[in-house]
Amino acid sequence: MTTVVIPNYNGLVYLKDCLEALEQQTYKDFEILVVDNGSTDGSIEYVANYYKSIRLIALDKNYGFTGAVNRGIKATDNEFVVLLNNDTIPAVDWLEALVKCIVSHADAFSCCSKMMQVQDENIIDDAGDGYTVFGWAYKGYDGASAEKANKTRAITSCCAGAAIYRRSIFNQIGYLNDDFFAYLEDVDLSLRAMRAGYKHYFCHDALLTHIGSATSGSKYNDFKVRISARNSVWVYQMNIAKWLKVINSLPYILGISVKFFAFKRWGFGNAYLAGIREGFKNKPSREYCQQIQGSISVRTDWFLYLSMWKDTFAYIKMKMEMKRIFGGYQK
């Protein structure tokens, strides 16, 4: 059996379409668990009154994406856990495709969906995430036409907005890091799993549409830029071995510099610098990493670093094809 965990914070306007789409799924062996982050827009009452079969966890305040989904994961003992954003509308066979994908890949910790833009369902929003030597994470094929991502493949990271996970592996590598609150927490989790020897896959036939930035309100704002910048430092500091940081110091410094000047041009330079400073000054909890130290080796770290270079070239190719110079992991 599978549990679909939907974190929600004042997302009543999106919940109806998402929940109705889940009711139409061809795969039936699943339950829905909505974890609400202290909403004040009637979300809790709506779910409680109109969806009696849905499990509901109503939290006392906003614990962020990480806090909500961690509580959801811990509240189930089913074999598979699906994390799903409330601003998505899954196709009828979406969940069936995800379950088939992870079952067919015994080495997989997670498999992610083919997320399409709600404004144009022929344009990709996310088709598996990458992580570059610049310390940037990015959405695969973001803005490209649907046919660009038409096969299942191994990837570096799964977007937790629509992905399936083997629940038992959380016990080994830890949960999403609560200190992240939101943004890049899924990249941190994915890199941690890779260092423990697990893989991630993009499932091309697990289709859904995604509005994007529904909770944060906009693609860029001071809060989102600052938190994303802070978390980007944490992802790098916690998952890249010390000796690799030395080797990769120049690309990493270049990555921070390029992003700063880009955000400065867009009016968010101060927010970006504040996040970078906070990331280096304040360290997140390391209890998650400590659980997997025994399985980390020079070989796994080299494999991760080679994957970063592969993703770097893929990112550059993608941007050149789309005639964009700059972009990043902004949900």
Rank of each mutant, 00 (worst) to 15 (best):
F134W: 13
V258F: 07
F280H: 09
V103M: 04
I240D: 00
D178V: 11
D311C: 14
M318I: 02
R192G: 09
G38E: 01
M194H: 13
E79R: 12
K74V: 03
L244C: 02
A91Q: 05
S257K: 10
D179R: 14
G327Q: 07
H105N: 12
N10R: 11
G269L: 12
Y315S: 04
D125R: 00
R286H: 01
V258H: 03
H105D: 05
K245F: 06
C111D: 04
C158V: 14
E31M: 13
E147D: 15
A162N: 06
I292M: 08
A214N: 02
G42K: 13
V246M: 14
K319F: 10
S216W: 00
A21Q: 03
D178P: 08
D186K: 08
A91C: 09
V235H: 10
H210K: 03
T300R: 15
I102H: 05
A144P: 02
W94T: 11
A182R: 06
I123Q: 02
T152I: 14
N239E: 11
W309L: 11
E287K: 01
E185R: 02
Y305Q: 13
L84Y: 08
D93H: 08
I169D: 09
G212H: 07
S232A: 15
Q24L: 06
Y315P: 01
D107H: 05
